[in-house]
Nucleic acid binder design. Structure first.
Lengths: 238, 238
DNA sequence: CGAGTGATTGACTGGTGTCAAACCCTGTGG
DNA sequence: CCACAGGGTTTGACACCAGTCAATCACTCG
């Protein structure tokens, strides 16, 4: 497993300036690492966690569970992401987070340690705060994607986002990125039925811009794909 | 116009503990107040604002503008909300915010003042941070609403949320709350065409649980309405 | 080789979008 | 005071996209 603190600092430094002193303070943060079993819930809707985790490896997803049993995925996370940093200042968490397959490893940081560090080190606080704001920005993009775009554009946009974010943290191999989901889960992310997800994927394949199989995205024509999905990465950088 | 600092402190104190000292510090924050013209954009997509605003009165909405010209509303805001606190730590803002009608008044706080106060006063920082996290929680609810619910449930859920949030800040008169939108805008919020919004509203009226006209929601049967919309306010409190 | 899971396709139905017209209300001007 | 214009709402007709049901195919695993 790669070094937790390296990932942590690389991620925060990628959007927020951190002095050597700030970085040292982050390195001093105690944490507990562990691997997640496939499908294991890291946090469940309604819980009041006392730790926040950074994803060190693999992919996890946030989701809502509706009364009907229908699952709605809210966002996907790659190495360096803090999928539940939201819980640092929310009493009760409104969603669950699960590992998508068997490669996920996390580092858990106690809320009290994070809060104490944030209180005495404003640059670190700002970096973590910004991390949660970029999350919010991704949520906004998802509202628009699932509400205002055609099925084809929606799926293309999702592929673009995951590929782009994976590339930024260096987990893209060649022109393929991991998206360890089944087509039914793709549907539960994009707000469409399994059969529609399958047919939409067929349409996307026909364009020659992208493929998706065995839980991986294969980008064949990035320019075309971003065009179909109206993808503009501005919202990710912030 | 009501006193800005009263609204500010009431709102933050409603979810975060603030000592007398914290409250005094907030009262010391300089700000500029002004009214917004109907449809006036408070912030535009792509800008890099140097202030964040708290809404003192009226209603404003965030939205994305798509290349096609289609508008997607992301969230609605009532008195006490900080619709663009997100910009405090985001370089470039990915969405616009506009006044919905002619009653909106705002108080603008300079980013540097907010950051300085947050740096030297952790409880205030936490309160503001939490404010942005509750925002994110509302975004998540919108993803699920627009992706996984029927048109009828979707609209009912929106009405519930606006009514509930309006009630919490004391702007509900009788059993009606302001939602100063046309049906076409309702559609652009819920991801449906104008005609569908109109027909969905007709269905909701038939249930006898709610009415919507002249930019106001009329709640006739709260229990039925929350049932139709699967509304659970947990995500708002946090 | 059979069982099980996920992907794919077909047939059918129902919901949603588009186009278009009629209606309602309000403000304006003759 | 009435005629008219304009914006918003409501309704109808119709096409089409998307959901459901169901069967088949492909692949892996025991």
């Amino acid at each position: 497993m790669p070094d937790i603190h390296d990932i942590l600092i690389a991620k925060l430094a990628s959007h927020s300036p951190l002095s050597a002193e700030d970085q040292a303070a982050l390195k001093g943060l105690p944490h507990r690492s562990r691997e997640l079993a496939p499908d294991e819930d890291l946090i469940r809707q309604g819980e009041m966690p006392r730790v926040s985790v950074m994803l060190a490896e693999g992919e996890v997803a946030r989701y809502h569970m509706l009364p009907s049993g229908r699952r709605q995925y809210l966002s996907l996370h790659v190495a360096g992401d803090w999928p539940d940093l939201q819980s640092l200042f929310l009493r009760r968490i409104d969603h669950s987070i699960c590992a998508l397959n068997d490669g996920a490893a996390i580092a858990a940081f106690q809320h009290e340690h994070l809060r104490a560090l944030a209180a005495r080190n404003p640059p670190v606080a700002h970096a973590l705060w910004r991390e949660t704001l970029i999350d919010a920005s991704i949520f906004r993009a998802a509202i628009t994607n699932n509400s205002a775009r055609s099925a084809k554009a929606r799926m293309a946009h999702l592929f673009c986002e995951i590929f782009y974010r994976s590339k930024r943290v260096g987990v893209v191999r060649g022109e393929t990125a991991a998206l360890p989901m089944h087509q039914s889960q793709l549907g539960e992310t994009l707000g469409m039925a399994l059969v529609t997800a399958n047919r939409t994927l067929r349409e996307l394949r026909r364009t020659g811009s992208v493929d998706f199989k065995d839980g991986r995205i294969f980008v064949l024509d990035w320019t075309m794909l971003t065009g179909i999905g109206e993808f503009d990465p501005d919202y990710l950088n912030a």
